[in-house]
Design a protein around this nucleic acid. Structure first.
Lengths: 342, 342
DNA sequence: ATGAAAGCGCTAACAG
DNA sequence: CTGTTAGCGCTTTCAT
């Protein structure tokens, strides 16, 4: 448990006080901008000079302790490598108040939540906790000890805030798009059932397709890990059968999966989108540009992060109550190959 | 500066001590696992029960203050949206000791370092500081106040550790690859000169091409921002001229730029790789899979992050001296279209 | 206007 | 074995 001690001892308020010939209390007032009307300009100047020459900076640990305040927000995510994580993070930090600092917690190994990761977070004393895409089992195992925000969980929990995408609307848009192109037999690629949001995406699509006379014509392909490689491997084995079964479009619950499917199609010599259209619920803004054949439902992870940040500012700085928000989604259509089928 | 105070007061060691009828010192010993041989099993049990019923967890702030220890490592990066960042982060957290916590600092706006971001970091009291791809001007403006690691800066600074990719080797590999395919007229896409590492990449490629009778045949395309969109926009305007000038291969200093160039080529109807090969110094492991026509020099950002993490463990936990390391790079060739030219 | 003093919650000697 | 005693560096009444 050894950690850094005493690396070139930093100047303390006492050092400054001695040099400026004042008390530490005065130093405190000055560094905290509370000197106005309580400290003479002359003494304040002396203090500031001492601070400069000693390169003094307040010890945030001591300061936090003395004030009984917590200023660390923990962001827990299954996998920092997933674009969803980066985008949420980007949105989050871009709006988070300066007085708050953000610490990252991700599982040591594996690509999904490890309960111990979250408990590691809960062990510290946090101002707030943000959980990216937590699964059901995880949510059931934790009791919040500070304001907690659930991102893209597809669930709500008493006492926690939730922010989710409007997957209903996404299902409508995606179904309209596919039907408009003449697709009636669609395949779905998802991952395990633990995450309600992914289940919701699948359900929304299924309902809307059915309402329009189309169908999820084959059994879902369930990918073991949320990773391109994993989707690639699985798709390689089922895509030929799907095409044989008359499937002309594949929808993926996440863009990472869509990439894997695209790569598998390329490897198998299945032409996209002429022979097979690929669509994905999407978090990666450039995917449509990088792979023009991919139809995207933009889940705007960045905006999700920004909302979370603003909500946190409200809760922590302004003591606002928890909220549950739904974010609009957007269809980015790229698949222009219209087709007519019976 | 308001921050959270007093959200459902947490139990303190004193509360536990009172309930277990022991002193706080004993509580401290128990929670820190130092009870062995210093506390009777019976009292330890009493303490543990009290801890459980009160849901007591040590106040890390107070603990850190009492021990005079810093356990926060700050990771500063220009842009969390860049895959390079995610991968380094992933590598970093996967090996970082449990006693250390990681906080993220990124610029509020813009997509490159903002000096104030780093100074924000320096203001806290950190165990260590990790800077991802800092530019020259930034490095010149800071004096380290804690162990500092420079990642992919292409520079060294006294008192700081540096970890860089072996871009020399990458240049050799890339030149060999291109020449082997028959390319003799190459175009280079980079960004501003402030980052030494990007300059080194360009220089390495240039030197190796020259040594083999090939050449960077056109003036470099300098992209304003490190982003796919930015590269796309710029490439759109110069690619036709490059092709006219006999350029058959484009090398990009970063994979994000390569994506933009690929997209621009697609938009312009330039066939890749038949008409134009695109190669990139690469951090995104799946890029070759997603866009099979892209030749990659894998800079293994994840390994870079892991090295940084191990180095930090060494420095912080074992008091090892600063190091300067170079990481091997690897060519991932995908461009199989051999061509023969004069 | 300034300083003395009392903690914040914890850890680390040192006694007993 | 366990409790007492000092702090860690800072903030904040409350006197002066």
């Amino acid at each position: 448990m050894g950690v850094t001690r005493d690396l070139r001892r930093r100047a303390t308020a006492r050092d400054v006080a001695e040099l400026a010939v004042v008390s530490v209390a005065t130093v405190s007032l000055v560094v905290n901008g509370k000197a106005a009307g309580r400290v003479t300009p002359e003494t304040e100047l002396r203090v500031r000079e001492a601070i400069a020459t000693l390169d003094y900076r307040v010890n945030t640990t001591a300061s936090a302790l003395a004030q009984g305040r917590r200023d660390t927000v923990a962001f827990v995510s299954p996998n920092p490598t997933n674009p969803f994580f980066s985008l949420v993070l980007d949105g989050l930090v871009s709006v988070l108040d300066d007085s708050l600092s953000l610490t990252i917690l991700v599982p040591r190994r594996g690509d999904d939540y490890d309960p111990s990761t979250v408990h590691r977070a809960l062990a510290g004393d946090l101002a707030a906790l943000v959980l990216a895409s937590p699964g059901r089992t995880l949510l059931d195992s934790i009791a919040p000890t500070c304001p907690t925000i659930l991102l893209d969980s597809g669930e709500t929990r008493p006492g926690m805030s939730s922010m989710d995408f409007d997957v209903e609307a996404a299902g409508v848009g995606l179904a309209d798009h596919l039907i408009g192109l003449g697709h009636t037999r669609v395949g779905y690629v998802g991952i395990g059932r633990d995450k309600a949001t992914l289940q919701h995406r699948r359900d929304a699509l299924h309902d809307q397709l059915s309402a329009r006379g189309a169908t999820l014509a084959v059994a879902d392909l369930v990918i073991p890990r949320m990773a391109i490689q994993s989707a690639f491997d699985s798709a390689l084995t089922v895509l030929p059968a799907w095409v044989d079964a008359g499937v002309t479009a594949v929808v993926c619950g996440d863009d990472l999966l869509a990439y894997g499917v695209l790569a598998a199609a390329a490897r198998l010599g299945i032409a996209v989108p002429e022979q097979l259209s690929v669509a994905g619920f999407n978090n990666l803004p450039y995917s449509a540009m990088v792979t023009p054949s991919l139809t995207s439902v933009d889940l705007s992870a960045r905006e999700l992060g920004a909302r979370a940040g603003r909500t946190l500012n409200g809760i922590l700085l302004g003591a606002e109550p928890p909220v549950v928000e739904t974010l609009r989604t957007q269809i980015i259509a790229r698949d222009s190959t219209a087709r007519a089928r019976a």
